[in-house]
């Protein structure tokens, strides 16, 4: 395995009295795509949100264990959550662009950091749009409302928006689940390009998608991490029977 980016040790997470994640231990490599698969309610999305502390926003969530990014525990008291989320960007299942112009969506993160220089804002908008392969579609309409874009374009704009604050890790929570096959293909191609620069963790319902885009795959079931290995291994020769049953479509 390449250089490690995220290390999780013995993580347990509870929603009130209900345990949602049980003893998760996983090492996620830098600048690779890691996919989380598993049936609904298996805890994969919950675990994704652990990685940038989005669970903090939900009441009654408790967790123990360690989550290290570059060797530093992100649940340490000295960690600034706001800073953490700038390093660990997130793309959600449904596109959630702000009801603002395309341009204002792209530079939202920069404006949060107090950057006002028009040139810097414009450069970043262009650069991230090119990274997200949407520049040609939006360059002539940056002042139009973001919500006038098509669903697939909106989702890629969400990715561009997340990239604008130069995160190290990009978390994607079923980014293509609401999209048509062509838009999905575009997003997958995009993920492929992005891994040269970013560490990507993607949650997906779609096993073919995991097989296509990821280097490593983790299979979750009932809050436990059942198996974690190279994607090729998980899909062709899994060690554990449950994984085999799931990836071959026998349940889930």
């Amino acid at each position: 395995m390449k250089e490690l980016k995220i290390t999780v040790k013995d993580l347990n997470l509870y929603y009130g009295a209900k345990q949602a994640l049980k003893n998760i231990t996983i090492n996620i490599p830098s600048k690779q795509v890691t996919a989380f698969i598993g049936p609904s309610g298996c805890g994969k999305s919950t675990f994704l949100r652990v990685l940038n502390r989005m669970n903090d926003l939900i009441d009654h969530v408790n967790l123990d264990g360690e989550v290290l990014i570059d060797g530093i525990n992100i649940y340490d008291k000295s960690i600034d959550v706001v800073n953490l989320r700038k390093r660990v960007g997130m793309v959600f299942q449904k596109s959630n662009l702000f009801p603002k112009s395309i341009f204002e969506n792209l530079v939202f993160g920069l404006r949060l950091n107090g950057i006002r220089d028009k040139n810097i804002l414009m450069e970043t908008a262009e650069l991230t749009c090119k990274q997200a392969a949407i520049w040609d579609e939006v360059k002539d309409r940056l002042d139009e409302p973001a919500l006038s874009l098509s669903g697939g374009q909106q989702q890629r704009l969400c990715i561009a928006r997340a990239l604008a604050i130069k995160p190290e890790i990009v978390l994607m929570d079923e980014p293509a689940s609401a999209l048509d096959p062509i838009s999905t293909a575009k997003i997958e191609e995009l993920i492929h390009h992005l891994k040269t620069k970013y560490t990507i963790v993607i949650v997906t319902h779609n096993m073919q998608q995991a097989a296509r885009v990821s280097d490593y795959t983790a299979f979750f079931y009932m809050g436990e991490l059942i198996e974690y290995d190279k994607t090729s291994k998980i899909f062709t020769n899994p060690t554990i029977k449950q994984t085999e049953d799931y990836v071959t479509g026998r349940f889930g």
Partner: peptide, 27 residues
């Protein structure tokens, strides 16, 4: 205002006040 928008804002590293003033109030 949908929870999605708040999540987008917090996910970008906005704090509570920034989320209120830049996302929720304008929306």
């Amino acid at each position: 205002i949908p929870v999605d928008l708040r999540m987008a804002s917090y996910g970008m590293g906005a704090n509570k006040w920034q989320t209120i003033s830049r996302v929720i109030l304008p929306a």
